[in-house]
Design a protein around this nucleic acid. Structure first.
Length: 106
DNA sequence: CGAGTGACCGCAA
DNA sequence: ATTGCGGCCACTC
């Protein structure tokens, strides 16, 4: 068996790194796809302390809104999404979020 | 090693 | 419809 240490993190890390361009995912989905339906909080921790190489800017909350602890602030995050071709509301909420939402193969 | 925190989500009043 | 609270697991100090 694999090491029981942070199997969850490995899963989330992998999924995030596999998010296609111009696509977004929710913390909840990542948690569910990782095996823990209500571990969305952990995803946030991993996102904050996790590897910066991963496109965390493509990860948003359930409402499709940008997070708060992103490096540089929501402004940077918003620009990133816009760079990906995703329209973001002035309230930092992704427009047509469901349309950009990437379906995880749970 | 122990305690606190956290980029969340879901439900209840 | 809105607001408030709890829970769950991992990571850091």
């Amino acid at each position: 068996m694999l090491k029981t240490e942070s199997e969850f993190k490995q899963r989330v890390c992998e999924l995030v790194s596999q998010i296609p361009f111009g696509r977004v995912v929710t913390y909840g989905d990542l948690a569910i796809s990782s095996g823990h339906p209500n571990a969305a909080r952990i995803v946030g921790q991993i996102a904050h302390f996790g590897p910066p190489d991963l496109p965390w800017h493509r990860v948003v909350n359930r409402m499709g809104g940008l997070a708060s602890g992103y490096y540089g602030g929501r402004e940077c995050h918003k620009r990133m999404l816009e760079t990906e071709g995703i329209r973001v509301d002035v309230n930092f909420i992704i427009i047509n979020f469901e349309e950009y939402r990437w379906r995880l193969t749970a």
